[in-house]
Simulated assay, not measured.
Amino acid sequence: MHFQTILITIITLFICQAGQFDFFQATKGNITYTLNKVSNPTTDQADAYARITKAMDSALGFYNTYTSLSRNLYIVYEPSVSTADGNSNGTIRFGSNRAYMVTATAMHEMGHVFGVGTTSNYKNLIVNGVFTGKNATDTLKTLTNDNTAVLKGDATHFWPYGLNYASEVKSVNDYIFHARIVNAMQKDFYPAKTVSHNNPGIKKSTGIYSDVLQCTLESEASVRLSVFSLNGKMLFKMESGTLSAGSHTIKLSELPLPSGNYWYKVTTGKQEFSGMFHFK
């Protein structure tokens, strides 16, 4: 096979709860929901369905724009629920109080779905009233431009930007910051462990071309790929969504670059590996 132009495209093929994703799009979320409805709703139920739909559509707008999370949620209107509640199994229930059928509450409960206060991964990171996860803490510092910022928390909630009460929302940034912090928390909950990887490029011994970089994760995590010229200039920086444990493939093809050697670095949680690949 002859390569007249040098091509590098990052296409990661992986399977998660939402299916198969293109690597370029994986930095966007793919959260969907199903609202359980009775076939012949009462006036109360019809009104609740409309309010819940509006709140969930708005909440998903923020989560799918500012996170890389993927999941299908199951939404229930249950009048006996005093406010609303979210479960790590993907279920969110809204009670009859209309004050909680709003974007802030929907996003708050989505945080519970993604582990806030509902998993040991979260609870283990609360120490003396402080959430100690590095990724979420660093994200808060960046968002607030405050290097001393700290995420406080207890067994079920975090603050600031936990959206624990709708009254906390003062601007659209409160929604955005919440989503980005919850997204960063996933890296703290599920630190990646890379157990193996190969080196792509031209195999000198055989002359066989390989454009596949493969790595194996011991646990669920996101993966960041950076590509550099040999003088250290970054050419690409791309991040996947949350990948399941197992083997994942990154295919290098289709974006023109000069022939020659390039460095790549793959970061998973607190670990990273790197190497050089060659095209001609």
Rank of each mutant, 00 (worst) to 15 (best):
K37A: 03
F236I: 06
L151F: 10
N183V: 04
M234D: 06
A245G: 08
S274R: 13
F62T: 00
H197V: 07
G19N: 13
S120F: 07
G207F: 05
N183P: 01
T144A: 02
T156R: 08
T242S: 03
A18N: 05
D154C: 12
T105G: 08
N199S: 12
S196K: 14
L225F: 12
S70H: 08
G241E: 00
V102G: 05
G260Q: 12
V195F: 04
V195G: 04
K187D: 03
S82Y: 15
K152S: 11
N124R: 11
A55Y: 01
R93T: 11
V76Q: 09
P256N: 01
A179P: 04
T132L: 01
V127N: 15
T142P: 04
R93N: 07
P258K: 14
S247G: 04
S240T: 15
S247R: 09
F3C: 01
W263T: 07
D47M: 07
T249R: 13
E218G: 12
S196Y: 15
D85Q: 10
K134G: 03
T65L: 06
T105Y: 10
R51Y: 02
S167E: 13
S167T: 14
T216R: 15
N36C: 08
V113R: 00
A221K: 01
S205F: 06
V38D: 09
T137V: 04
M185W: 00
K237A: 12
A179W: 02
H197E: 04
L35F: 13
T67W: 01
F21Y: 05
G95K: 06
K141Y: 11
S244A: 11
M107A: 00
D44Q: 14
F114R: 00
G162R: 02
L13R: 15
Y33C: 03
T139I: 00
L243N: 02
L243M: 13
L60K: 02
H278L: 07
K134P: 08
L7D: 11
Q17G: 09
Q45N: 13
Q20S: 11
K187T: 00
F273Y: 15
E220F: 04
S80E: 09
T139Q: 01
T144H: 03
D188E: 13
N30E: 05
G117S: 04
E272W: 14
I8Q: 05
K134R: 15
P160I: 06
T83V: 10
A46D: 14
Q214I: 15
